[in-house]
Simulated scan of single mutants.
Amino acid sequence: MRLSLIRRACAAAVVLAATMAPAVAAQPDGSGARGGTAALSDIGAKARLLGAKIVPHKLAFRGTTVGGLSGIDRDPCTGEYVAISDDRSVLQPARFYTARIAVDGAGVHSVDFTGTHPILQPDGGVYPPVSTGDGKAVDPEEVRVDPRSCDYWWAQEGDRPKSSDEPVIQPSIQFAARSGAYHGQLTLPPNYKITTRDWGIRRNTAVEAITFGAGGSVLTSAVEGPLLQDGPEPTLQHGALVRVTQHSREGDVLGQFAYPLEKIFTAPDGSSTYPPDTGVPTILAYPGEPSRYLVLERTWVAGAGYKIRLFDATTRGATDVQHIDSLKGQKIVPMRKKLVADLADLGLSRIDNTEGMTWGPALTNGERTLVLVSDDNFAEDAVTQIAALGIR
């Protein structure tokens, strides 16, 4: 699992190029990432809806309840898909599913589950329910198929407790056999840790997005929301900066960049005590373009529901912030981005809690399919939806 010297040199060159741009003041509202048409001429995909299929609510499959699907990836070894459930071992042990999804230019024709396995701890046991309070629970959020071995890498958010009486569960990126057996975990950068002070990862906004790039030699991760020291979460007036990190396969940080998260799109109507929630639940590397990503931003506002937007983003020219403890007040160049699509504008009949995406098969017209999955949280008023877009 070591990078060759050539691959290390290439990865280092990408990071070096990204840090040579002159620094300018970061714009937490996201405007600093859209510096005009000329600056964005190298990115800007287009999307169209191909179709969607809704999985029956709480579908029973091999002794488990299908739901909570928060991450999805296409398996290059089989052509099937793997999806991870964010059930924190409450209904059944934390687990993933495999499925055949028939997708082409005419839409999503069928979703057929083919297998399920629990995610195992290093000792070979399943993860306990979060309610046990023993500090060993997990919150699975993302899964990727290793393009080299076809084993699974998965990310979990951990838990910053509400009180000092509860255990801290650190976020992690782990790798596992296709059977779910534990194979190891990636060393995370220090600023991805949950600390006992007002520093590090916020509660429920930790590592929720990972993706392979550069032929599998680089794993990129993104935290869902801003670190505590990097400033407040998005508001109606201002966006925020979230950290995106490029790792080597053995955990070395090749570069860390600030992605500009959009401000909240509308005010809540007072129908819920829950505040607006927004963040980056998934990120996807472009094949053959190690600095370019599709980034999904998911926002929920009481009374307005979900807004799901896709952005084409690049680390090229962005400041490497891995050694900057706090982004507040710092003069940096954030990642540039350009809107690809607001799902509400594509004609999708149901906009729900979309949290996972993966590249699907290529189409004959030159488009790549993008397969999306929504996390129903096992709630009666939500859906598990598999949608497909054509990306050009």
Rank of each mutant, 00 (worst) to 15 (best):
S163K: 07
E80D: 07
P118K: 00
H183W: 00
P76I: 05
S89L: 08
R178G: 14
E166F: 02
G105E: 12
Y81K: 03
G180E: 13
S164G: 02
F113N: 10
Y152W: 12
I84Y: 12
E166N: 03
G158W: 03
H109L: 07
R144E: 15
Y97P: 14
G105A: 08
P189Y: 09
E80S: 02
T195D: 06
A94L: 15
D104T: 09
I101A: 02
T205L: 08
S89I: 09
Y182H: 04
S164K: 03
G184V: 01
T114R: 15
D75R: 02
G124E: 14
A94W: 03
D112Q: 14
I84P: 03
Q121K: 06
E157R: 10
P147Y: 02
Y192I: 05
I169L: 12
R144A: 15
L188R: 07
D198P: 08
A99P: 15
D87P: 01
P147K: 01
R74W: 04
D86H: 12
I169S: 07
C150G: 06
D86F: 06
G200M: 02
P129Q: 05
R74K: 06
G200R: 04
A176P: 02
G68Q: 01
P118A: 15
S164F: 00
R203V: 10
G135P: 11
I201V: 11
R95F: 01
D151W: 04
L188E: 11
S131P: 09
A137N: 14
L188F: 09
A106F: 01
G125K: 04
C150L: 04
F175Q: 04
T205D: 13
G133S: 06
P140N: 02
G184P: 00
T196I: 13
W154M: 13
I201F: 09
S179Y: 11
P122K: 01
S131L: 06
V103Q: 12
T98N: 08
I72D: 08
P161N: 14
A94I: 07
E157V: 00
G125V: 11
I101T: 13
L120P: 12
P140K: 02
D87F: 08
V145L: 08
T98M: 05
I72L: 13
P93H: 02
F113W: 07
G184T: 00
W154Q: 15
D112F: 01
D151N: 13
Q185W: 03
A83W: 07
P140F: 09
W154A: 14
Y192K: 04
I84H: 04
G125E: 15
E80M: 00
K136R: 11
G158E: 08
T116Y: 00
W199Q: 06
N204L: 10
H117S: 04
Y81H: 09
R148T: 10
G105I: 05
G200T: 07
W153F: 13
Q174A: 05
E141V: 00
A94P: 15
Q170V: 10
P122G: 01
D86R: 12
D134S: 14
W154K: 09
I84N: 08
W154N: 15
Y127C: 03
V82G: 05
P140C: 06
P147T: 01
